[in-house]
């Protein structure tokens, strides 16, 4: 799960705005640029930052990249076959890969909670931030519950054969649905007992902005744009 690294990587304490800026600006460049060299450079820069600065284990990064590779490769192969435009398909392949690299950088270095705090800071309505936060938290709660339910079902042959599987799956989904309401009820109780009055205010992590980081990102952006227009 890339999540695990997001909370514990060497760039965890870098300001999330800087990481978002880095990721999105390079993504924009790779979507616009018509230079193969630029696309390759984006891929290389992102890989270098992820591996050497964020210190994500190379094996894990390679695994993530190779699963993306299958999708991107099949997609662009289909285009190459359909349009007989090998050059165009190559471009799409590398463009997609560059954009994916940018996205992977973000999800490997920046936990969702930090991204929510940025959204809060740029005045996205509190309700939306809270909803996103709760949704995110409860994805894991329900994943866990559904996993446990599934195990319990399997141990009583719930998934033995197609017919049983359909039935067990139906029960799993409906029980999850009921659990969801119950869970929401208990959560509300628990929040109320901690003084909840309608707004989920929590302490945000303090981040220091680094002029050096912003300057470095800007220089990389400018260089890439310059390289692309030559």
């Amino acid at each position: 799960m890339p999540e695990r690294y997001a909370y514990a990587n060497a760039l965890r304490d870098v300001h999330p705005v800087e990481k978002l800026f880095f990721s999105f600006s390079l993504m924009a460049i790779s979507l616009i640029s018509s230079s193969m060299a630029v696309l390759l450079m984006v891929i290389i820069i992102m890989a270098a930052v992820v591996l050497f600065l964020a210190k994500i284990p190379p094996r894990y990064y390679l695994k993530m990249m190779s699963s993306a590779f299958v999708f991107v490769f099949l997609g662009s192969a289909a285009i190459a076959y359909g349009s007989v435009d090998l050059n165009g398909a190559m471009f799409i392949f590398f463009r997609a890969f560059a954009a994916i690299s940018c996205f992977y950088f973000l999800i490997l270095t920046t936990p969702a909670s930090d991204i929510f705090s940025v959204l809060r800071k740029i005045h996205v309505p509190a309700v939306i931030c809270e909803l996103m936060g709760l949704t995110y938290r409860f994805i894991f709660v329900f994943m866990d519950i559904s996993h446990k339910t599934r195990t319990a079902q399997s141990s009583r042959l719930g998934y033995d054969g197609l017919k049983n599987s359909y039935r067990a799956m139906g029960i799993l989904v409906s029980s999850l649905f009921q659990r969801m309401f119950r869970q929401a009820d208990i959560l509300n109780t628990a929040l109320e007992s901690r003084g909840y009055t309608g707004e989920l205010r929590v302490m945000q992590r303090g981040f220091k902005t680094s002029a050096a980081n912003i300057a470095a990102i800007t220089i990389i952006d400018v260089l890439l744009i310059f390289a692309g227009t030559r």
């Binding site: 909370y7 936990p111 969702a112 909670s113 929510f116 936060g133 709760l134 995110y136 938290r137 709660v141 866990d144 869970q183 208990i186 959560l187 628990a190 929040l191 901690r194 003084g195 909840y196 009055t197 989920l200 205010r201 929590v202 302490m203 945000q204 992590r205």
Partner: peptide, 20 residues
């Protein structure tokens, strides 16, 4: 499991004090 609602421990613990 149902009492914790935040993504990180520090955020969750800060909820009550913030409400005060």
């Amino acid at each position: 499991e149902v009492q914790l609602f935040s993504a990180t421990v520090a955020e969750d613990v800060s909820f009550g004090p913030m409400n005060l």
